[in-house]
């Protein structure tokens, strides 16, 4: 089977940068609010649950999830293409990464969306 030896082209490049910028912003908020940095503190259900039960944080976390999964797995795919040169192997790894992404997306979504404190 012919498997295209490209990084996904322009859109993969563009979305890697757009999600990258978004992740910097989302992560700074995540550290400041969820991890209460720079003060810090122990995270328990009582601390995390009330926030996760609100619609605002559900939207925030889902956006975070989608951006991080795309950025991370697209990044792994870029690394793979530098070291794995067999088209067949690339194809299997590509579908493997897509499957992993889908599983993690579902796992994250079923954690966040139906959550009630």
């Amino acid at each position: 089977m012919k498997f295209p030896r490209t990084s996904g082209g322009f859109y993969a490049w563009l979305f890697q940068r757009l999600t990258g910028i978004l992740l910097v912003i989302l992560l700074l908020i995540h550290f400041a609010v969820t991890h209460n940095l720079p003060k810090g503190g122990t995270l328990t259900y009582a601390v995390v649950a009330p926030r996760l039960a609100t619609a605002t944080w559900k939207v925030f976390d889902l956006m975070f999830l989608v951006c991080a999964l795309f950025h991370g797995l697209n990044g792994v795919w870029m690394v793979i293409q530098d070291y794995v040169h067999s088209e067949t192997a690339q194809m299997w790894i590509y579908y493997g990464l897509c499957t992993l992404g889908l599983i993690l997306l579902i796992l994250g979504a079923i954690t966040v969306i139906p959550f009630k404190a």
């Binding site: 259900y45 995390v48 991370g72 690394v79 959550f115």
Partner: peptide, 29 residues
């Protein structure tokens, strides 16, 4: 980058325990 994606997978799995309620979540946390 590779360390972060490895962490992300674990993080999603760990935080998923919140669906089990306070006992399960506090245990893993």
């Amino acid at each position: 980058g590779l360390l972060l994606i490895f962490y992300l997978v674990l993080h999603i799995w760990v935080i998923h325990h919140i669906s089990q309620g306070p006992a399960g979540f506090n245990k893993v946390m």
